[in-house]
Design a protein around this nucleic acid. Structure first.
Lengths: 218, 218
DNA sequence: AATAATATTTAGGTTTGCCTAAATATTAAA
DNA sequence: TTTAATATTTAGGCAAACCTAAATATTATT
């Protein structure tokens, strides 16, 4: 019923890697967790022994229903703490993640549910990622990638994916935060970079960045 | 610069046991930590190797200055989280401790200082224990034990020592919480039990309980 | 002061989670 | 399809933090 910090981190990471690509490879997981492939294999045996994983040697793995439940609860804790840090303690966008990485392993369910209530049941964390509710339900955003947005269609930034310190710093510099409304004015044929208009100011962003921003038309 | 959960718990517990009795014994520590004497010896070697303890085999140990600094910072985190849980999340008196035991090991200094600010720099936790400030200074209460209070002298409950689920539950039943003003009306010669008046209601408490309550005359 | 009782430490073992190096599977290239 | 490259697993070890049982110190008792 209670899992170690390591186990929780493995489950959470598999959960994130699983989105899209259905099955997760040993090396991909090792890289995300800053560990070695052999260590991953060890843990995979342990977790599948506990029934948290579907695992066949040499063919990636995926979470079982039980495993997914645990992963979602870790994600819930992480995002609620991020929300708390940003909204109550005035933490900067890019600082919340690392502190929440620690807080997420405090396992009291009561703590998290009361925190949720205290915060007013927020829907998304400071990066726009949805916060699972206490039953483990995750609301799916109907957002599209900025790169897929039509020309001249105004849209609001909802979420940042592939978050890293670098991308968050970059967005801060370009003054692109959640809630900002923008539209694509031009896509340069040469390198696919995009000319974006926001509040009558033009900004240029790379194709890569446009793939990491999720927007909703307004 | 960074210490494990175990190390922090050892340092914190030595700090608590040290108050009063200057030096701490292996067995006393083992009992408090729910572990075995041999495990304590192992850890003592490790901590004194790191310069956090004064330790001579077979003669107890005490914290070095550096060790005390770490212990105090753990105590600070613990009590701030307790305050947060009680004041913001409406946790019950006796529930805060165990959750704070986990939260106290989240090590970000920035987190704790911002939490302190957010809470308005509280002076004491929900049990009346003083919260060390960010420089590690601990304000000493000028409280006395209820058992040492003079007859008919009104006093306010400031602090509960030797906290345990049992004592907190007991206090709740007797409706004795922090801030309550009371006075001793009689001490029974037979068993030293005390007749206490609070808000014109009489309560009987044992000598033992009266040793665990700190009060300040009003 | 000698012996018994108690406290502490040492010796040797376990589990968790990690590692490197070697072996084996799978996939890609010639 | 045979070989080369890559991915994964196995084997054997290590450190942290715990354990039991045995050895050694200290303290208390007669």
């Amino acid at each position: 019923m209670n899992y170690s910090v390591s186990e929780e981190n493995y489950l959470k990471t598999i959960f994130h890697l699983q989105e899209g690509s259905d099955t997760v490879s040993t090396n991909a997981l090792a890289e995300k967790l800053n560990t070695k492939a052999a260590s991953v294999t060890d843990m995979m045996k342990k977790l599948s022994g506990k029934g948290l994983l579907n695992y066949t040697p040499y063919y990636g793995f995926s979470l079982s229903n039980e495993g997914k439940k645990i992963a979602v609860s870790v994600v819930r804790r992480h995002r609620l703490w991020e929300y708390f840090l940003a909204s109550r303690l005035n933490f900067d966008w890019k600082e919340v993640h690392s502190v929440a990485e620690e807080l997420e392993h405090v396992s009291s369910k009561k703590l998290i549910d009361k925190l949720d209530e205290y915060l007013g049941y927020p829907q998304t964390d400071p990066h726009g990622d949805p916060i699972p509710d206490s039953k483990g339900r995750v609301s799916q955003t109907q957002a599209i990638r900025l790169v897929d947005l039509s020309l001249h269609q105004p849209a609001e930034i909802l979420q940042v994916i592939n978050q890293s310190d670098e991308i968050l710093e970059h967005l801060k510099e370009k003054q692109l935060h959640l809630g900002i409304v923008l539209e694509i004015k031009k896509i340069h044929a040469f390198d696919q970079s995009l000319e974006i208009k926001r509040k009558n100011k033009m900004v240029t962003i790379t194709q890569e960045l446009a793939k990491s921003l999720l927007v909703k038309t307004v």
